[in-house]
Amino acid sequence: MNSNNKGKNGERELATILREYGYDSRRGQQYCGSNGDADVVGLPGVHIECKRVERLNIYDAIEQSKNDARDGENPVVMHRRNRKEWLVTMPLDDWMKMYGKALHDN
């Protein structure tokens, strides 16, 4: 499978998983090409950079997510290797803000 198809398949796979959690998720660029959306959309307040690769430069990926995120969106990278689980990587400061908000909301 070429890397372009692997990336698209990874985005579809991740969107499916997020829908199983109850979110209306889909590939961000599936309809009209590059439109400024994240790779996968449907999580309010989160800009998802999806990476489905064996070797990942996580700092480059998170920088891409930061650069592409709109105001009010937390940049995250959701990634996995073959036969491994999905992981989420984000800046610690953003994670602490989300964690603190979740604690206070409960």
Rank of each mutant, 00 (worst) to 15 (best):
L18I: 09
K8F: 04
E85A: 15
P75V: 03
V40Y: 14
R27H: 15
R26S: 11
D60H: 12
E20I: 08
T16L: 10
Y99S: 14
I17C: 11
N35H: 06
K66R: 12
A15G: 00
D39H: 04
R12A: 07
C50K: 09
M1R: 13
C32N: 01
G22A: 11
T89W: 13
E73C: 08
A102N: 13
V88W: 04
R55F: 13
L43V: 06
C32V: 03
H47V: 07
D39C: 03
K8A: 04
Y59E: 03
Y23N: 09
D68V: 02
H47N: 04
A61K: 13
E49T: 07
P44T: 07
A15W: 07
T89C: 13
R52S: 15
E11I: 02
D93T: 04
M78W: 06
G36F: 00
Q64S: 03
V46H: 01
S3D: 11
V88S: 00
P44A: 13
Y59N: 00
N74A: 03
T16H: 11
D71V: 03
R70D: 09
L14A: 00
G72Y: 00
G28A: 06
R19P: 14
G36W: 00
T89S: 14
D93M: 09
K66H: 00
H104V: 12
A102D: 15
L103C: 07
E20R: 15
R70H: 01
Y21Q: 15
H47Y: 12
R83P: 11
N106A: 11
A102V: 12
N82G: 09
K66Y: 02
D93H: 08
K97F: 01
G28L: 04
G10Y: 07
